[in-house]
Design a protein around this nucleic acid. Structure first.
Lengths: 257, 257
DNA sequence: TCACTTCAGAGTACGGCGTACCCAGTTTCA
DNA sequence: TGAAACTGGGTACGCCGTACTCTGAAGTGA
């Protein structure tokens, strides 16, 4: 499956926000949702998302496989919970100062670090967005810091989506190298060396003059693609903010385009 | 599995570029790689990626399941081939005019349309990028059109990665609604109505003053988040291009940041 | 106190998946 | 005319998620 957001969204929300009545009869639970999610994240971090199975988690926790279903409706919902769990941040006082630009810069850099810590996120955070506590916490903080930009509410959301999307794409480019290494046992150099003969033959065919003429270091690790793109995006937002700068007020504006 | 780029990369490349010796002995193949890939794409388009299984494809093609393995090393490689197949574009003469900005604009819009035609791409194009003919074709065309920007080679690549990443993120936001509808049988309104009671309780808790104060239409469909973000990104690139405009030459520059 | 209700734990089983292995039949070459 | 090279495909293995069901523990109301 490996797809989050495929479970019952309402049940997921109840689990995420810890709602629903607690039973008073019956035996005490020997497990907890938290322990299951934590184990799942641990396994995913160590061995990748494909190692996370209900059977594996149950042996990890020393219980029967089906016992897990007392706590989680299914694997789809579990993935949603993993996603939110991993986005949880301690309240960081340094996150309150600064202008909107440094706020979004921090958002981008911290998101990238998150994907590097948990590469399986790149495979999991597809499909429907899940509105868990951590996600909304983060959203709340970021929005409050970038409100002074003077954009409309939809535009603020768009700005955040933009950063998020960009980070995912850039992270994928960065993470795929070390992922491939872990899974295939090849180092990055070996990996490219394996492809090189094929690719060189293709480039030598003359069908791709432009690509063949690119400089040697184009795809190398020297250039920091992430920072480059992040700054360009922030520049783009800056020109919009500047163009609005003349008039006063900071809410209720029309969408620009 | 549902993860592309997990197969043997070298074998994938050989398949993509139609290399490798043809056997001369033995019976003629009754199937072809193309037919398999095409069937896979057809099934994925119609019923989603989770409907694509080797058994399903074999019944679709009227063969035995294991016969497919005469043509494809495994399912991971098949996914790679599907990815490249679907990116294939007829040579479009209108793609040759215009400045760099309209080139990147077109790239973004066409990518978005691609994801809307094949929503399963959002679940498949994770992990390692695959350098197939279609991908390289597209790359060749785009690079040749944006070279006049006067950026360094790594910067050009970065610009393309930026657009691509952004489009994926935006497409996910757009596609998830119709995906959820198809799978759960709920319309978008019903879907949000189902979540609404939970979310409203959360918002009423007072823990998220900023988010609760966002205007009603913030998450509505009226605002075109995609175009907004795309224009901001292009603006950001424009400021960089302008700042380089003074000096001459158009290659071999230092990376900026 | 005791019957009853509610609940947790977990074994068994089903249908699906990817694919390793092997054999049968077909085509081409020496 | 073998022998070699190849395709087709059946069988089987070990995974997966999870529906169903039974056992026994914990709390409740009489």
């Amino acid at each position: 499956m490996e797809t989050s957001g495929s479970g019952d969204i309402v049940r997921t929300l109840h689990l995420l926000w810890d709602m629903g009545p607690r039973p008073s009869r019956g035996p005490k639970p020997g497990l907890s949702l938290d322990r299951i999610v934590e184990a799942a994240v641990r396994v995913a971090d160590a061995e990748g998302l494909e190692a996370v199975s209900m059977r594996r988690l149950s042996t990890e926790l020393g219980t029967g496989t089906m016992s897990l279903y007392r706590y989680v409706p299914g694997k789809g919902e579990l993935l949603d919970l993993m996603l939110d769990r991993v986005q949880r941040t301690d309240d960081d006082p340094s996150a309150h100062g600064g202008d909107w630009r440094s706020a979004l810069e921090t958002l981008g850099r911290e998101s990238l670090a998150l994907y590097q810590r948990h590469p399986w996120l790149l495979k999991a955070n597809q499909s429907r967005p899940v509105l868990g506590p951590s996600a909304i916490d983060g959203m709340e903080k970021v929005i409050s810091r970038i409100r002074p930009m003077g954009l409309s509410d939809p535009e603020l959301i768009s700005a955040i989506i933009m950063i998020d999307s960009y980070v995912i794409g850039a992270a994928r480019t960065q993470v795929h190298a070390q992922e491939a290494e872990r899974r295939t046992g090849l180092t990055d150099t070996e990996f490219w060396a394996a492809q090189a003969p094929v690719l060189e033959k293709i480039m030598a065919s003359g069908r791709y003059p432009v690509m063949a003429s690119l400089s040697e270091d184009t795809f190398g690790p020297e250039f920091d693609h992430f920072e480059f793109g992040l700054q360009r995006i922030l520049d783009g937002l800056a020109t919009l903010v500047d163009s609005r700068g003349a008039s006063a007020g900071d809410s209720g504006r029309r969408p620009g385009a």
